[in-house]
Design a protein around this nucleic acid. Structure first.
Length: 604
RNA sequence: GCCCAUAUGGCUCAGGGGUAGAGCACUUCCUUGGUAAGGAAGAGGUCGUGAGUUCAAGUCUCACUAUGGGCUCCA
């Protein structure tokens, strides 16, 4: 047996650890390395090692479950003391001490009844046992420490060296909000020291890209304690960026046959009763009373668009009819989930509603998915799609839900677009396709969404006259591509680490005049560039030239342009190009052509 | 909302029961410089808010607010 053997993988893909394998096993060996299977075993064992360390440090510790996750492992447990970040070092130290004892990890089998008896004083283990259907369970043992577990584990503690406990958090027992809160410690582990180092370095790099940090540095947006949590302020530079993004998208919508509309921010509560929001979404809505009438601040824009549709009679010839709005919505998110621009209480959706016939759904969904793809490609985003099905709180008949859900799947399947299923994740009025983008540290965020809705049009008596001269109810497709400007710009900031491409950069060019006599020339160029919708700044402060160049370079702008006697004389510019990472001279006209070309990259 | 942690000038941070420090940024002056920090002087904080303990609280305790890491939910 190889010294580096830590388990086997059978032809069904199951991992079998050395403790479980019989002598004549003919499965493929798993060596001690960074393969996904090896890491699964190593990380799970590290979770157990952590539990053992915690047991020694906190004698009253009780453990729930300790699985591996995408990014390492965690263990949920309960102790009488409070555990903070400080304690992680202490636990790590104890883990390293335990490794030196060179315990073997052994496995034995007992019946479930014996297990219930064995852990009779441990309510958490009892909770785990109720979740196990089998009659036989397994105990893994290292030194004095025993834990109920199905494995897999490494053969001995000597395989566990390169780990780090990353954070401490609270987690509900079994993820159930009504149950007690346990302590959760997350950690990561690898087969070699280098990989662990690389991982730690990567996390540090990711932290540098955090949109909250960059947003503050670049003065894009801010929050204010006195004004309230989750309510972002857009500072001048953030607004410039946002304006450009709005503009690009505005044109893209017009090209695709969408009409701009705008509804009120606040509507009578009865509207929300009709829509079903009051019943299904009420706890997330902000309500107020005006002249003894209850009103609700809109959490979604659909109602407004429906009223506009209904304002005049519509024929089948008008369909599909596409309305879009940069709709400001308010949603009462729980205080604990607010997160920079990625989760706020007021945000602006790039929202659109398509009124169409049931026959038009498939082609409309395809068009939307194409639109989504062109936006994602523009920014170089990787994204994934998920079809979300009927949630518990929902309105409408089951068969209508079934039809709409199948429609979405068909549209994706017909175009060979890969997707996963999010069971029960749909909106209360219909199924949806969610488009998810990954942020700098690998968290996935829902951005775009496509939702088919048979319910709202019926509730609001939306109608059109068909070819047969009868009245019919149209289908409504709700869709957003960015999702919200807030979240999208947050992710965009991390994606580019603040170095936005020219077509959306908040400041596109900084002019550095060599001396005061060149400021007039810089101003002249700046004014010409404003006509191209290009935002420029002139760094003419009373600082040394070197200092001003340094400051300008640190602003993450695409171009820093130096102008002095030579440039004034030749009507030219000396360019420091972020993209090319080099310096060169161009005539101003050539520069204008270059800029126009680069602005064109932002067209979709 | 729940668990844990944090809160000191615009920003990054030091200090710590006897009424506050640094660097950057800011202001003024000198310097007018050809590609990443020229020099000097100055201004700015009742140490998140409110209570309590104490002769004395930025410092200890509690509550609240906000932020961070999670749970749950979601764009």
């Amino acid at each position: 047996m190889s010294e580096n053997l830590i388990g086997y993988i059978d032809n069904l893909g199951n991992i079998i650890d050395t403790q479980s394998a019989d002598e004549n096993i003919e499965a493929q060996a798993i060596e001690y390395d960074n393969s996904p299977e090896a890491l699964e075993i190593i990380r799970h064992s590290t979770a157990h090692l952590m539990a053992q360390a915690i047991t020694e440090l906190y004698t009253n510790a009780k453990f729930f479950v300790g699985p591996t996750v995408d990014e390492g492992f965690y263990y949920d447990f309960k102790v009488d003391e409070k555990i903070g970040e400080e304690d992680l070092k202490k636990i790590e130290k104890k883990m390293k001490e335990l490794i030196k004892k060179k315990y073997k990890i052994e496995k034995y089998e007992i019946t479930k009844e014996e297990a219930i008896e064995k852990f009779t004083n441990d309510d958490l283990k009892q909770a785990v046992l109720t979740r196990i259907p089998d009659e036989v369970v397994f105990i893994y043992k290292q030194g004095d420490f025993e834990d109920l577990c199905q494995g897999p584990h490494v053969p001995a503690l000597r395989f566990l060296h390169n780990f780090k406990l990353t954070r401490v958090a609270g987690a509900y027992l079994g993820g159930d909000e009504t149950k007690e809160m346990l302590t959760r410690i997350y950690g990561i582990a690898f087969a070699d020291k280098e990989s662990l180092k690389d991982y730690i370095k990567m996390m540090e790099e990711a932290k540098k890209r955090d949109h909250r940090k960059i947003g503050a540095e670049m003065e894009l947006f801010m929050f204010n304690e006195e004004s309230g949590a989750g309510l972002p302020f857009w500072m001048p530079k953030g607004s410039r960026l946002r304006y450009k993004l709005e503009n690009i998208l505005h044109k893209a919508h017009r090209k695709r046959g969408y009409e701009p509309v705008r509804g009120p921010e606040i509507l009578k509560a009865d509207m929300w009763r009709t829509s079903g929001h009051y019943a299904c979404y009420g706890e997330n809505m902000y309500l107020t009373t005006i002249d003894e009438q209850e009103y609700g601040i809109k959490p979604m824009n659909c109602i407004g668009h429906i009223q506009i549709f209904k304002q005049s009679g519509k024929s089948y010839r008008d369909l599909p009819l596409k309305y879009y709005e940069y709709g400001v919505v308010h949603r009462h998110e729980k205080s604990g989930v607010l997160h920079g621009l990625l989760r706020v209480r007021e945000f602006t959706q790039d929202d659109a509603h398509i009124f169409c016939t049931p026959e038009q759904i498939a082609s409309e969904v395809i068009d939307i998915v194409e639109f989504v793809d062109s936006v994602m490609k523009l920014f170089g985003f990787e994204y994934s799609m998920e079809v979300a099905t009927k949630p518990q709180k929902a309105i409408g008949d089951d068969d209508v839900w079934e039809l709409a859900t199948q429609g979405l799947k068909d549209a994706l399947n017909e175009n060979n677009l890969p997707f996963t299923i999010d069971e029960g994740g749909g909106a209360f009025y219909g199924p949806k396709i969610d488009i998810k983008i990954t942020d700098a540290i690998g968290r996935k965020w829902q951005c775009g969404t496509v939702q088919v809705d048979f319910n709202l049009p019926e509730r609001f008596n939306v109608e059109y006259v068909g070819e047969d001269n009868d009245r019919h109810t149209p289908v409504m497709i709700h869709r957003a591509i960015l999702g919200s400007f807030e979240r999208f710009i947050g992710i965009l900031t991390e994606h580019y680490a603040g170095e936005f491409p020219l077509f959306i950069a908040p400041t596109q060019i900084i002019f550095v005049p060599i001396s005061e006599s060149h400021v007039a020339y810089a101003k002249e160029l700046k004014n010409q560039l404003i006509d191209l919708d290009i935002d420029c700044e002139i760094f003419d402060k009373n600082d040394s030239l070197n200092k001003r160049i340094r400051t300008a370079e640190k602003q993450r702008v695409p171009y820093v342009v130096i102008v002095g006697d030579e440039e004034v004389e030749n009507n030219s510019v000396a360019i420091r190009d972020r993209r090319a990472k080099e310096q060169y001279n161009l005539s101003f006209d050539e520069f204008m052509v270059k800029l126009s070309q680069q602005l064109n990259e932002g067209k979709i």
